[in-house]
Protein backbone atom coordinates (compact mmCIF):
# COMPACT_ATOMS: atom_id res chain seq x y z
CA UNK A 1 0.00 0.00 0.00
CA UNK A 2 1.48 3.36 -0.97
CA UNK A 3 1.56 6.07 1.71
CA UNK A 4 -1.43 8.37 1.88
CA UNK A 5 0.34 11.23 0.10
CA UNK A 6 1.57 9.05 -2.78
CA UNK A 7 -1.63 9.35 -4.77
CA UNK A 8 -0.78 8.84 -8.43
CA UNK A 9 -3.14 6.34 -10.03
CA UNK A 10 -5.16 5.74 -6.87
CA UNK A 11 -8.58 4.73 -8.27
CA UNK A 12 -11.32 7.33 -8.21
CA UNK A 13 -14.25 8.30 -10.38
CA UNK A 14 -14.42 11.76 -8.85
CA UNK A 15 -14.53 14.54 -11.43
CA UNK A 16 -12.06 17.38 -11.07
CA UNK A 17 -13.66 20.27 -9.22
CA UNK A 18 -12.43 23.35 -11.04
CA UNK A 19 -14.03 25.87 -8.75
CA UNK A 20 -11.62 27.85 -6.63
CA UNK A 21 -12.04 29.40 -3.22
CA UNK A 22 -10.75 32.72 -2.03
CA UNK A 23 -8.04 32.13 0.57
CA UNK A 24 -9.12 32.89 4.11
CA UNK A 25 -6.80 35.15 6.11
CA UNK A 26 -5.41 32.18 8.02
CA UNK A 27 -4.53 30.42 4.75
CA UNK A 28 -2.58 33.45 3.57
CA UNK A 29 -0.91 33.41 6.97
CA UNK A 30 0.09 29.75 6.79
CA UNK A 31 1.40 30.05 3.25
CA UNK A 32 3.48 33.09 4.13
CA UNK A 33 4.63 31.70 7.47
CA UNK A 34 6.26 28.79 5.68
CA UNK A 35 8.06 31.30 3.46
CA UNK A 36 9.34 33.17 6.50
CA UNK A 37 10.42 30.00 8.30
CA UNK A 38 12.24 28.79 5.21
CA UNK A 39 14.01 32.08 4.77
CA UNK A 40 15.18 31.92 8.38
CA UNK A 41 16.32 28.28 8.02
CA UNK A 42 13.88 27.15 10.69
CA UNK A 43 12.04 24.82 8.32
CA UNK A 44 12.91 23.52 4.88
CA UNK A 45 10.56 22.25 2.23
CA UNK A 46 11.61 18.64 2.74
CA UNK A 47 10.79 18.87 6.44
CA UNK A 48 7.46 20.48 5.59
CA UNK A 49 6.63 17.56 3.31
CA UNK A 50 7.82 15.00 5.83
CA UNK A 51 5.63 16.57 8.51
CA UNK A 52 2.63 16.38 6.18
CA UNK A 53 3.36 12.75 5.35
CA UNK A 54 3.58 11.97 9.08
CA UNK A 55 -0.13 12.78 9.54
CA UNK A 56 -2.39 9.80 10.10
CA UNK A 57 -4.06 8.77 6.84
CA UNK A 58 -7.56 9.66 8.10
CA UNK A 59 -6.41 13.12 9.20
CA UNK A 60 -4.52 13.68 5.93
CA UNK A 61 -7.62 12.76 3.94
CA UNK A 62 -9.96 14.89 6.02
CA UNK A 63 -7.79 18.01 6.13
CA UNK A 64 -7.71 20.90 3.74
CA UNK A 65 -4.45 21.84 2.06
CA UNK A 66 -3.35 24.50 4.54
CA UNK A 67 -4.60 22.48 7.50
CA UNK A 68 -2.01 19.91 6.44
CA UNK A 69 0.64 22.63 6.34
CA UNK A 70 -0.45 23.82 9.78
CA UNK A 71 -0.09 20.30 11.18
CA UNK A 72 3.39 19.95 9.68
CA UNK A 73 4.64 23.34 10.89
CA UNK A 74 3.57 22.36 14.38
CA UNK A 75 5.22 18.94 14.18
CA UNK A 76 8.53 20.33 12.97
CA UNK A 77 8.71 23.35 15.30
CA UNK A 78 7.87 21.20 18.34
CA UNK A 79 10.36 18.56 17.27
CA UNK A 80 13.08 21.21 17.02
CA UNK A 81 12.19 22.62 20.43
CA UNK A 82 11.32 26.03 18.96
CA UNK A 83 7.82 25.86 20.45
CA UNK A 84 6.21 23.39 22.83
CA UNK A 85 3.00 21.52 22.17
CA UNK A 86 1.58 22.85 25.46
CA UNK A 87 2.14 26.50 24.66
CA UNK A 88 0.65 26.03 21.18
CA UNK A 89 -2.42 24.40 22.71
CA UNK A 90 -2.73 27.22 25.22
CA UNK A 91 -2.33 29.93 22.60
CA UNK A 92 -4.84 28.14 20.36
CA UNK A 93 -7.36 28.27 23.20
CA UNK A 94 -6.90 32.01 23.42
CA UNK A 95 -7.48 32.30 19.69
CA UNK A 96 -10.56 30.17 20.16
CA UNK A 97 -11.85 32.29 23.04
CA UNK A 98 -11.49 35.43 20.98
CA UNK A 99 -12.68 34.31 17.56
CA UNK A 100 -13.72 30.68 17.76
Amino acid sequence: MPSVHDRGGMPTTEPIDRSSHEWADWEHLVNALVGVLRRRDLLNVDELRRGIEAMSPPEYEASTYYERWSASIETILVEKGILSADEIAEAAQEVDARWG
Binding site: A24, W26, L29, V30, L33, S63, Y66, E67, W69, S70, A71, I73, E74, L77, L83, I88, A89, A91, A92, E94, V95, D96, W99, G100
Partner: peptide
Protein backbone atom coordinates in the same frame (compact mmCIF):
# COMPACT_ATOMS: atom_id res chain seq x y z
CA UNK B 1 -5.71 23.53 12.60
CA UNK B 2 -6.43 27.09 11.56
CA UNK B 3 -6.49 28.22 15.18
CA UNK B 4 -3.25 26.43 15.90
CA UNK B 5 -1.58 28.09 12.91
CA UNK B 6 -2.65 31.51 14.17
CA UNK B 7 -1.42 30.51 17.62
CA UNK B 8 1.96 29.41 16.25
Amino acid sequence: RAKRAIAI
